[in-house]
Simulated assay, not measured.
Amino acid sequence: MNESAVFATNVIDVIQERRTVKKFKADPVPVETLTRLLDIAVWAPNHKLREPWRFLLFTGDGRQKLADAVTAELGEDNKFAAAIMNVPVELIIVMKEDPRQAIWDEDFAAVSALVQNFMLAAWSEGIGTFWVTKPFLYSPVFREQLGILPGEKIVGMVYAGYPEVVPKAQQRTPAADKLTVFD
């Protein structure tokens, strides 16, 4: 078997075996590991290598800053701030917004591919992830607390850590059921 075939099988396995993890062990994930995974993730396809992303990483005591930003928007009695403190890592992925729709769309697709790359790379090293999009991510109060500027979009927040529980696979609709072929 040639080397590229072995690699392709590994990628396929990681894609099919990855799960959304919502329960994490308390064990910290080293910043060096997360940085290395981001260095892998940035190989996402992106038109003209615009690299329209930046990252905010919250670990250890730094998670409190994120919890405080959520509390500033939602008030003291909210479940999200508590959840943040119970997850080892939160990563916010921010996209520079271009006013030209076609470029905005290309950049959003690139950043989404980057998030998927990060999640797959993390899974290949035993780190679970959960891509979160919540209404508070759009809040001016929340954004200001974290230095998210006008002209930037939060594409998502990724919870990460070593899985406490790995969910069972959910059935997927075969692509053939949603495929139109023109020949």
Rank of each mutant, 00 (worst) to 15 (best):
R19Y: 01
R19A: 07
R19L: 07
T20Q: 13
T20R: 11
T20C: 11
T20D: 10
T20Y: 01
V21L: 12
V21R: 07
V21K: 10
V21P: 09
K22A: 02
K22D: 00
K22Q: 08
K22F: 01
K22G: 03
K22M: 08
K22E: 02
K23T: 00
K23P: 01
K23I: 00
K23Q: 12
F24N: 04
F24D: 05
K25Q: 13
K25I: 02
K25W: 02
K25L: 13
K25F: 02
A26C: 02
A26W: 06
D27A: 08
D27Q: 13
P28F: 07
P28C: 02
V29L: 06
V29A: 03
V29D: 08
P30T: 00
P30Y: 02
P30C: 00
P30G: 00
P30M: 00
V31P: 01
V31N: 11
E32K: 12
E32Q: 13
E32F: 01
E32C: 00
T33G: 08
T33N: 14
L34F: 01
L34H: 03
L34K: 10
L34W: 03
T35C: 12
T35R: 15
R36Y: 09
R36Q: 14
L37Q: 07
L37V: 02
L37N: 08
L37P: 09
L37S: 08
L38T: 03
L38P: 06
L38N: 05
I40R: 13
I40Y: 15
I40S: 08
A41K: 11
V42L: 13
V42A: 09
V42R: 15
W43Y: 15
A44F: 05
A44Y: 03
A44N: 07
P45H: 10
P45V: 11
N46Q: 10
N46R: 13
N46W: 14
N46V: 10
H47K: 11
H47D: 06
H47C: 11
H47Y: 04
H47P: 02
K48E: 03
K48C: 05
K48L: 10
K48W: 03
K48F: 05
K48Y: 04
